[in-house]
Computed example of a mutant assay.
Amino acid sequence: MIIVRLDRVMADRKMTLKELSERTEISEVNLSKLKNSRVKAIRFSTLNAICTELKCQPRDILEFVYDI
């Protein structure tokens, strides 16, 4: 199971969804869907843009947890 931690990283950086959207040119709707784990896939270009703006690694945003 993949858990999205975008909200935590954004909070650590004191960045709003709107601000991240403006900086990455990714729509607020798509960022919101990602933040709330309502996506089935993410493009590397999207992940790259988010990590660049938040100055983080993909592992800071995405976490794998074994299903038991």
Rank of each mutant, 00 (worst) to 15 (best):
C51I: 00
L54Q: 06
C51D: 03
K33A: 10
R23N: 07
A41C: 11
A49C: 02
R13G: 06
D12S: 14
K35S: 08
V4Y: 03
I61N: 08
L6P: 00
I26F: 00
R13C: 06
C51K: 04
T52L: 13
I3P: 01
E63N: 09
R13I: 14
I50W: 07
L20A: 04
C51R: 05
I61M: 08
V4H: 01
A41F: 03
L17C: 15
I61W: 05
N36S: 13
S37N: 13
D60Y: 12
V39F: 01
E22F: 11
A49E: 13
F44A: 11
K14E: 15
K40W: 06
P58S: 09
R43D: 12
S32A: 11
S32G: 05
T24V: 09
I26V: 13
K18L: 12
A41Y: 05
S21E: 08
I26T: 01
V4L: 08
I42A: 02
I50C: 08
E53P: 04
R38S: 09
R59K: 13
R38N: 13
K14A: 15
L34G: 04
N30M: 08
R13F: 07
S45M: 03
R59C: 14
N48M: 03
M15F: 05
I3Y: 04
K55P: 10
E28V: 15
D60R: 02
C56Q: 10
K14V: 08
T46I: 10
R8S: 14
R8N: 14
R59M: 09
F44T: 06
V9R: 08
C56R: 11
S21D: 07
S27P: 10
M10K: 05
K40P: 09
V29A: 08
L17R: 06
E63I: 02
R59A: 12
S37T: 04
K40E: 15
R59G: 12
L62K: 05
K40D: 15
D60T: 07
K14C: 04
T52K: 15
K40G: 15
K35G: 02
N36I: 11
R5P: 03
I61A: 00
F44G: 09
D7L: 13
D60K: 06
R38Y: 05
V4Q: 05
K40L: 14
K33M: 07
R43G: 12
E25A: 10
S27E: 01
R5E: 07
T16N: 03
M15Y: 11
I42F: 01
K55H: 12
M10I: 02
Q57V: 06
A11L: 13
N30F: 05
V29D: 10
P58C: 02
L47E: 09
Q57Y: 11
L34K: 00
N36D: 07
A49T: 00
T46S: 09
V29R: 12
S27M: 05
S37A: 05
L31K: 00
R23A: 08
E63A: 14
V9S: 02
L17K: 05
I3V: 14
T16E: 02
S37V: 01
S27L: 01
F44N: 09
V9A: 04
A11K: 15
T16Y: 02
V4G: 04
K33Y: 01
D12P: 04
R59N: 11
Q57P: 10
V29Y: 10
M10C: 09
T16S: 14
L31M: 08
Q57W: 04
K14M: 07
V39A: 03
